[in-house]
Amino acid sequence: MDWKLELVPIPVSDVERSKRFYSEQVGFAVDHDTRVGGDVRIVQLTPPGSGCSIVIGAGTGVRQAEPGTVQGMQLVVPDIEAARAQLVAHGVAAGPVQHLEDGTMAEGPGEPWNSFVFFSDPDGNGWAVQERPPGAEA
């Protein structure tokens, strides 16, 4: 039996601001932006090439953690330098390319599966972007 992760909620304080950040700056596709009743809004966004989406929302009945409390969400890309350049070009405050060395993060790319870029959304939810070696399955 396959068990596939489909949807991860990301707690945000301003749905419209977060929708713009994830779609216009990070490049996620807006799958749907739905209003249910008067005050409930659900926005689902998917990273390019991903089988898993995120959901942001607001209103009565939308239960979420405090905005900014999700840390360690991870995206995988084939080219870390190109991914960082794309984020920076779209106004995302992405950190430098780093790798894990002797238990701490060091500047520059590392060995296969050991090159990362970190960024946060406007609420402080933290993301890591990891480079996948050529030919490796994501």
Rank of each mutant, 00 (worst) to 15 (best):
W3S: 06
L5W: 02
E6I: 08
V8A: 13
P9S: 10
I10A: 05
D14M: 10
V15Y: 02
E16G: 02
F21K: 01
Y22T: 09
Y22P: 03
S23D: 10
S23Q: 14
S23N: 11
E24D: 14
E24K: 12
E24R: 13
Q25N: 15
V26S: 02
F28H: 05
A29C: 06
A29L: 12
D31N: 14
H32V: 02
D33G: 11
D33A: 15
D33M: 11
T34L: 13
V36H: 11
V36I: 09
G37P: 01
G38L: 07
G38H: 09
D39I: 01
R41A: 09
Q44A: 15
L45E: 09
P47A: 15
P47W: 07
S53L: 12
I54T: 05
V55Q: 15
V55H: 03
I56P: 00
G59T: 04
G61E: 05
G61Q: 06
V62K: 00
R63C: 06
R63S: 09
Q64H: 14
A65V: 11
A65G: 15
A65C: 12
E66H: 13
P67R: 04
T69A: 14
Q71D: 00
G72D: 04
G72I: 01
M73W: 08
Q74T: 10
P78R: 09
I80N: 04
I80L: 05
A83R: 04
A83F: 00
A85S: 14
Q86P: 06
L87W: 00
L87I: 05
A89V: 10
A89W: 01
G91L: 09
V92G: 03
V92Q: 08
V92W: 03
G95V: 01
P96T: 13
V97E: 11
H99P: 05
H99L: 03
L100D: 06
L100I: 15
E101I: 02
D102P: 06
A106V: 10
A106E: 06
E107L: 08
E107A: 11
G108M: 07
P109R: 05
P112H: 12
P112F: 07
F116I: 04
F116H: 10
F116C: 00
V117T: 01
F118Y: 03
F118S: 04
F119N: 09
D123C: 08
D123I: 02
D123Q: 08
G124V: 01
G126F: 00
W127H: 04
Q130M: 05
Q130C: 07
E131P: 00
E131F: 03
P133E: 12
P133W: 07
P134R: 11
G135R: 11
A136D: 14
